[in-house]
Design a protein around this nucleic acid. Structure first.
Lengths: 260, 260
DNA sequence: AGCAGATGTTGCAATGTGTGGCATGTGGAG
DNA sequence: CTCCACATGCCACACATTGCAACATCTGCT
């Protein structure tokens, strides 16, 4: 910071500073940076163009913002492919009987399952999701257990050791789990270590476990394999995945259920 | 609060802030945002029009609201005596410093405290309330721990053995607790056995504990005495209770703090 | 019902920003 | 030494954003 230099910074140094400011402030202005480095705005613009092409930031009028800084609010995410998610919800609800103990994972697809479960009676719901807990506790004839832990803001759900430990205390009749992706070779994968671990345990613990995956997740690749996912009873989707994927998946165990 | 506006915010930054406020407060005003960003109201209006066309909010006279406003139920309850609760919130926030570990009980008054805490940095929030957890996890620079347990639908918060046990695991700098009533003889009482037990433990465990009680609770009678409430550092209210009540209370220990 | 003040709308001018072409300067390679 | 590649600055012009002013609505209150 004690730059205030007579000597101009070289390009890589500017790039570092731009990214550093982005990380700190979430956005940077071109004019502001031009003044700071004492270079012309064109130069800053060229720097930003270079960084934008490498996916390190997003260009906007007047400057740049974090790449994908506009993470869609959860309320938005739940609206995309709403029809598909509702179909998954209905198919999931058909697998639940009155009086069961149901685990609902975090995620917008499981939220759709929660909506579909409102017609059932005397359920006991266990969930890590704040939104689902809030929604279900407003229903009559439902008992809700919130699994505590540190809250992941992007999921608005509990993660971490406390949640993992709490899972072990329940006897679950049926669990509905989210997932990051259904990989081309028929594996279910996740974004985060915590999420993968949590889902893995639940797949192994629950009497029956189902993954709910809407069609946007087919063929994607996310970094973490969910161990023991093949212990799940099935995968509920809103549209048939490619035949090869179905075959690869069902050979491992889980059946594919397509919501109408 | 935040000056930081040597340079005006970029458009996407305004969009983010508008959506962020919307998510936490449920609605935003045009004039208020124009002042905050130091831009004209037309500019905010154009921002909102842009966001409205993308389905991210609903325009209303004077501002915008959430696209599909959720549940007026609790919002309504928290609006009664909103001014008083906001005053309590401000007084409570004055007792909190950046970086502290804060426990927030369930209830609409503690929700007002949560709102007032948004200007703090690097807080760690522990709460049993679903609504508070959801609200706080949307704030930047806040870590949220949700204490799990069975959800009481009327409180929309975790109660019971799991919550009690989880409380013991945290080292709390300051706790803000609700209560059912401030009895005529200067005792703080509660509606339920679980609630009383939970508040009792927290009053004893936290480094400093404060009860937040709005004036509607003065002189009422509820069945359960909160044990060890006199270990609390204070009681925060929005209007002075009768002098006799103050005297009876302060003789036991807690000081009375009146929010302005 | 009517009034005052706040809010929404529109056209326009001013300012700020994006883009491409071209000139200059620097350093290294031939 | 020249030549070339590269980074940078400058300029002109196109475009986007913003604020202002004038006028149309709406809201809350008496």
């Amino acid at each position: 910071m004690s730059d205030s230099q007579n000597h101009r910074a070289l390009a890589p140094r500017r790039h570092d500073e731009i990214l550093r400011r982005l990380a700190t402030d979430g956005s940077v202005g071109i004019t502001e940076l031009a003044a700071f480095f004492d270079v012309s705005r064109e130069t800053i613009r060229r720097d930003m163009k270079f960084l934008a092409e490498r996916g390190q930031l997003d260009l906007v009028h007047g400057g740049a913002t974090l790449f994908e800084a506009t993470e869609p609010a959860l309320t938005l995410r739940s609206q995309e492919n709403a029809a598909g998610k509702a179909a998954i919800g209905r198919a999931a609800a058909a697998l639940v009987e009155d009086g069961m103990v149901v685990f609902l994972d975090s995620g917008t697809t499981t939220l759709a399952v929660a909506h579909a479960l409102t017609c059932k009676q005397n359920l006991t719901i266990c969930t890590t999701s704040l939104t689902i807990a809030l929604h279900m506790c407003r229903q009559p004839h439902v008992r809700v257990h919130m699994l505590g832990g540190e809250i992941d803001p992007s999921e608005e759900a509990a993660v971490g050791v406390d949640a993992l430990e709490a899972i072990g205390r329940f006897r679950i009749d049926v669990a509905f789990l989210g997932g990051g992706a259904l990989s081309p070779d028929g594996e279910i994968t996740d974004f985060t270590r915590n999420g993968a671990e949590q889902r893995s345990r639940m797949a192994a613990t629950a009497a029956r476990a189902y993954f709910v995956l809407d069609s946007s997740k087919f063929g994607r690749l996310t970094p973490l394999r969910i161990q023991r996912f093949e212990l799940a009873a099935g995968v509920i989707v809103d549209a048939p995945p490619p035949a090869a994927m179905i075959e690869a998946l069902e050979r491992k165990g889980p059946k594919v259920i397509v919501g109408e």
